[in-house]
Design a protein around this nucleic acid. Sequence first.
DNA 1: CACCTTTGTTGGATCGATTCAAATTTTGCT
DNA 2: AGCAAAATTTGAATCGATCCAACAAAGGTG
Lengths: 360, 360
Amino acid sequence: MASSTESNTRPIRLADIAKAAGVSHGTASNVFSRPEIVREEVRERVKAAAEALGYAGPDPKGRLLRAGKVNAIGVATTEPLSYFFDDPFARAMMAGISEACDATGAGIALVSAGNQEKLAWNIQSALVDGFILFCIEGGSRLVELTRERKLPFVALELGFDDDTVSAIGVDNVAGARLAARHLAELGHRRFAVLALPFADGSTGLVSPEQVRTALYTGTRDRLVGYFEALSQFGVDTAGIPVYETENDEASTRAGLETIFASAEPPTAILAMSDRIAMIAIEWLTARGIAVPGDVSIVGFDGVPDAALCDPPLTTVAQPIAEIGRRAARTILDFDGTVRRETLGVELVVRASSGPPPKAV
Amino acid sequence: MASSTESNTRPIRLADIAKAAGVSHGTASNVFSRPEIVREEVRERVKAAAEALGYAGPDPKGRLLRAGKVNAIGVATTEPLSYFFDDPFARAMMAGISEACDATGAGIALVSAGNQEKLAWNIQSALVDGFILFCIEGGSRLVELTRERKLPFVALELGFDDDTVSAIGVDNVAGARLAARHLAELGHRRFAVLALPFADGSTGLVSPEQVRTALYTGTRDRLVGYFEALSQFGVDTAGIPVYETENDEASTRAGLETIFASAEPPTAILAMSDRIAMIAIEWLTARGIAVPGDVSIVGFDGVPDAALCDPPLTTVAQPIAEIGRRAARTILDFDGTVRRETLGVELVVRASSGPPPKAV
DNA sequence: CACCTTTGTTGGATCGATTCAAATTTTGCT
DNA sequence: AGCAAAATTTGAATCGATCCAACAAAGGTG
């Protein structure tokens, strides 16, 4: 019940204290923004007036309009807000973004929403100097929405070929080659791929046609990398089942059901994300299929959790934090140019991959 | 090098398109904010003009000043920004906050900074409707800083006795009693406490004097709860070492060194956070001390990770997400009153606690 | 003492929108 | 056609600050 009596009085403005102190609003403003240029006696008088009236200091809302710069960068996704705190990949990325923001004193505004309509509104009304976009699914919509704000923005992962948008990602082809070569060198010849989305809203086994017309070229590139490397080992890539998941538990499990219903199940799984890989490990282990004894798995991303699961995951590690750092820098130091960066990846061999079982 | 030619032309304003379309700016504004009240013919004309000039839509910076509401809540801490994505407790809390924000379409602005000076500035200039404060260390400073903004704010964990600030926390005394009673009932009689900070910047063994003058009453209350319960079992609480940590690895390890240097080391450890407890488990295990065979440990908080460590941690679970949800609601539905809520906790028994070893 | 600096202060213009009472146009009806 | 009611449109006021050119006062110099 505190402060209910004074609740009808409207907040104190700078002009109010200027009047109270008997100075112009210009001087009053200076007292707060450049105190050194106003005479001490006056400065004290204004400060006293501010104190007496209970002035909260210059309202950033007012300052903002004049200054133009918000000094905050928006991070947007089509997922719910909690994605930023739950998903390991997002978290690692946010750590990198945080670091760059901490260094320059910029703030972070998280932008998302329950539904598409609100998302559009939230992007339109976000008070930020630029956006970093997490382009998971619905990435293209997100890009379109953001483009209309006419603010600098950068997409994480070069999701599409559109050269007009800044993007930071990794060399997916090279990374995928690394993963596939590793398994082939261990002796594997029967593979399955658990893929990320090629397009919005579809899941299931993927046809070459779908691959060719993939909306998400990152997914396609990884597949290309897998196949390139495997071809070099004489593997018939046409016979490899490629199951498109939504990078979640349900679709990954469905994919595994499909793949292992086969008469000749694979001895090695190429998973396009660590998330998928870890779900797969759990699924296989629960069914008594040994990893890597019976089936080897290689993930993609290199999230911190991957080192901690059982068995620890062999994976293609992206420099996630570095991507985040660069993305933030791109917005913070925006110079009007489109910037597309491709970073290198690294194969991290752990315990989820080994030679295929002897007897077939 | 895109768009370098047009970079010197200043952004299009609503007034520009009003002129171009030959209507007043009032009408132009209505086209965007209340399209239904303007005649279709005019509406189309204005939209066409906007399209032609490349207008990005009403600038939120301008709208904000008039509207007054930002529609975002600030979450502040004295830790670096990455704290929100690294710390399990913070993450669970943010998940609850996210949920409430998603539901109402509000945004989240993360506020922090590398140093104290920037922190002050960032709090003063954050564009938010209110704050949620993570009061770890330096909590009192954070509260003072925020209070000056004269915006609604709520402190997480009733860190201090100050009744003028809204706060949401748990019943620390009751929770601590639960933990201590559990261990006493298992037969333990020799205890040690790994505490959270009692005041800023101090660590080490704590004297009763320090406890009495504790800045953080949450820490004090937990200790009081521990001692109350143990006294009932005839344990001499005066002989229990209480080591103040900073809730991090270094100080916790130092505390363990101190505690286990004793001739009669404890058989049970009361840790005031899961973080501390998990660090302790790791430290003990690495030294060949079995948990719970040789030493039992009970944590506090109930972060998700606690269920996954080895052995799974017995702990006093706070309704973390619920606290977050309520905190967000408190800001979102602010009614001018001070609100202090105390939520219940629950003992979750897992494998880190068991009877003390037989032979002493 | 006139003149030039230096230092401080003033008040109008501006940032980009929304709002609302008043003015204007349309529509409906006889 | 005439007139009241309804539907649109206008333009000034406002939100809360910062910026800056112009001015005033004080200090220094020949």
